[in-house]
């Protein structure tokens, strides 16, 4: 009994002491990166004892929130523009900026043979709706549209395009079969938990055919002295973290 009590005290002591050094980081993350960063975060917490709390949302909304004093220690955007703008605004630590991942576009369909004849399917345009993320607000959508234009396919499908507000939203249109085909993110189809995993077909748009979708991250002014954030930004560049990010369908260069 006495021994058990001793063990209990010792482990409580350990717990308390580890909490003393552990800090918590609040990180704003672009919605497309949700699952990936959660997976990275889990390993990070286990290895360092620090805590990370993620808030997910559209990049523009997160940008606006940080600009208006939201309590985030770091910002992981879906593009480079808005994270860089955060630094220009004076709300970020300039030398903390880096590209943490590159998104990949795929053409997905449950109905059409996009894997073998992607361009023929697009040329024939025998579908009612082609889902694309809003090119004005989502980099995935912007690249998909410019890809279509560069291949001379845009005018043929223009009237069939429906815009999701984000890449997740465009994906929803395809999953619920409201659109028979769509440009979505690779991360959405390779995830074993994805509702389309193993169903339908997808074709990876060659990276050489569109400008890379660089997703940029930075430490905010609020987070510059937060040990947990510093540790996390270091961790996400380690081979272990990069491995996870790649598994989720992103490129890291």
């Amino acid at each position: 009994m006495k021994r058990l009590f001793g063990i209990l005290m010792f482990s409580t002591g350990l717990l308390v002491s580890s909490q003393v050094f552990a800090e918590t980081a609040n990180i704003a993350v672009a919605a497309n990166f949700t699952k990936t960063i959660e997976a990275v975060g889990k390993v990070f917490e286990k290895e360092t004892g620090h805590h990370v709390k993620f808030s997910f949302g559209p990049t523009g909304k997160l940008y606006a929130q940080i600009r208006n004093g939201a309590p985030f220690d770091a910002f992981f955007g879906a593009d480079e523009r808005r994270p860089k703008k955060t630094i220009e605004d004076g709300n970020g630590v300039a030398d903390s900026y880096f590209v943490y991942a590159q998104g990949q576009i795929v053409l997905y369909s449950a109905k059409f043979p996009v894997k073998d004849q992607p361009l023929d399917v697009l040329k024939a345009a025998e579908f009612n709706h082609l889902a694309v993320a809003n090119p004005k607000t989502a980099p995935y959508g912007e690249r998909a549209v410019s890809y279509l234009k560069s291949k001379g396919l845009y005018d043929g499908v223009k009237s069939k395009i429906v815009n999701g507000e984000s890449i997740a939203h465009a994906f929803q249109y395809v999953v619920t079969r409201n659109a028979e085909i769509g440009f979505v993110a690779m991360s959405q189809v390779v995830d074993p938990q994805s509702p389309v995993y193993g169903k339908g077909q997808y074709w990876v748009v060659p990276q050489t055919d569109y400008k890379p979708i660089n997703q940029g991250a930075l430490i905010t002014k609020r987070g510059k002295d937060n040990e947990a954030v510093k540790a996390f930004m270091k961790f996400i560049k380690t081979p272990k973290a990069i491995e996870i990010i790649k598994q989720f369908g992103y490129n890291v260069s």
């Binding site: 909304k61 809003n134 815009n163 507000e165």
Partner: peptide, 24 residues
């Protein structure tokens, strides 16, 4: 959710505002 943001068909004001905010 159900609109698809098509000009003249489903792009209503609230969505338009959202897009403007998103694209700064």
């Amino acid at each position: 959710m159900v609109g698809g943001n098509i000009p003249g068909e489903t792009r209503m004001v609230s969505i338009d505002i959202f897009d403007h905010v998103e694209s700064l």
